[in-house]
Design a protein around this nucleic acid. Structure first.
Lengths: 232, 232
DNA sequence: CGTGCAGTTGAGCAAATTCAACGCTTGTGG
DNA sequence: CCACAAGCGTTGAATTTGCTCAACTGCACG
């Protein structure tokens, strides 16, 4: 709705950019204000691209991003990869029905991740109403993220790319803005496209003046409304 | 794994058909054995194609299918529809982060649905460990269903259709087998395809001897392994 | 100053969509 | 019980979209 003059603002890849996107950031919770959930478990530092868990691993922990970014995915027998979700600070994930993981997860950058034993969290929730409330919110957010992802498919390629750019801009907290650099391959695997297709979409957005690039992975959204209307 | 001679078994659309698919049915819980969750709320009968809630509606209840089938979806401005999830007896859904629904939901056939106030359920979970456990299981299943759905996209059309047939066959309880008839449009909207494409895939499966049709919407899986190897 | 990886761009190809016509079912009224 | 209409599904042909293959560019790192 409220657009803003292009070029008034700079931010990093998938950074929140202008106008309404930036003001929505608080939704992703300032990540630690007074959440009791953040008293449980241990924060562990993971180096870029390291694995949190793999498909088939025993599911012992839930994971909450403190700083950095994560992705969950499944690899296919033919070497393909479908990314199911990107995670940003404040996101809790790793939920499983059974006792083993059905997806893999990695951090995308050097990250700090709070690891919380499933058992601990469930019993903490039984004791502490605040923890229960936070946990409930987190699982509902996970459901929502995944549902929104599904809504992207079945749209044309450039629409999906535009959506992803806007969504990440909205979700990434201001503090983290400078950090994330996401590869074309990650974008492609998230959207179910080939990297060439993603590249062509990005090029088109540049020509339209919707975004600018500085370095391959630094995307600055100059004119969100152009992207938004591609989605329509 | 264990396949069975084709034609040994009959079942309705998306019915569980033979061998390993039928034995897996208990996973979807016999839906009512002794779940405390089934003591809460009220069972309401909904006629075929009626709405449970619409996008933007205030989110007051959670919904648990007692008998029949449901679907959740979002409609696009251009009249398109993306189905996010199909629901079968035992499935609990309608979770929301905020206080309004971000999707719509309908029943697909005459159905009985247990409606449970979100508040009631959350407070019941705080009191009763068994309810909390069931609820936890249900939200985790919802996450899983949605994640699995995402993994379908990015595969070729006929693979997606094959997956859906097998998945529904697996999920639908034996009792309900005769009831569900799903339109090509529903399949297409779930998979992000056009009805013509779905139709062509189905025709191909018939030629391959993997399934037979009796009436447009009665699909009998004759040879699950043929479908399974399309997925590979 | 190369070497290698990531990204871009182009040309041809394959897959799915679009458009259009036809056929089968089902339900309704004669 | 048959005739007919409406809706759903099927099938074919042309078109569009995205993918494959391949060459090339730019940047990072040794």
């Amino acid at each position: 709705m409220a657009t803003q003059s292009p070029g008034s603002f700079e931010s990093d890849v998938l950074a929140r950019s202008v106008g309404h996107t930036s003001i929505r950031i608080p939704q992703t919770q300032p990540s630690g204000a007074a959440d009791r959930i953040d008293q449980i478990g241990t924060v562990v530092a993971f180096p870029k691209n390291s694995q949190l868990y793999g498909e088939g691993d025993t599911s012992t922990y839930l994971y909450k991003i403190v700083s950095g970014f994560g992705r969950s995915f499944r690899t296919t027998t033919e070497g393909g990869r479908q990314i199911v979700c990107f995670y940003v600070p404040g996101d809790l994930f790793g939920f499983e029905v059974g006792d083993s993981h059905t997806l893999s997860a990695e951090v995308m950058t050097d990250s700090k991740v709070r690891m919380i034993r499933r058992n601990s969290l469930v019993s903490a929730a039984a004791q502490d109403e605040d923890v229960a409330h936070q946990l409930w919110l987190c699982v509902n957010r996970e459901i929502r993220r995944t549902q929104e992802h599904i809504l992207q498919f079945g749209r044309p390629a450039r629409t999906r790319v535009a959506s992803l750019l806007l969504e990440m801009a909205r979700r990434i907290p201001a503090v983290e803005v400078e950090v994330l650099s996401i590869s074309r391959q990650d974008i492609a695997d998230y959207l179910g496209l080939r990297i060439e297709t993603v590249s062509r979409a990005v090029s088109r957005f540049v020509k339209l003046g919707a975004i600018t690039l500085s370095g391959n992975r630094k995307i600055t959204i100059r004119n969100p409304s152009v992207l938004a209307q591609l989605i329509s």
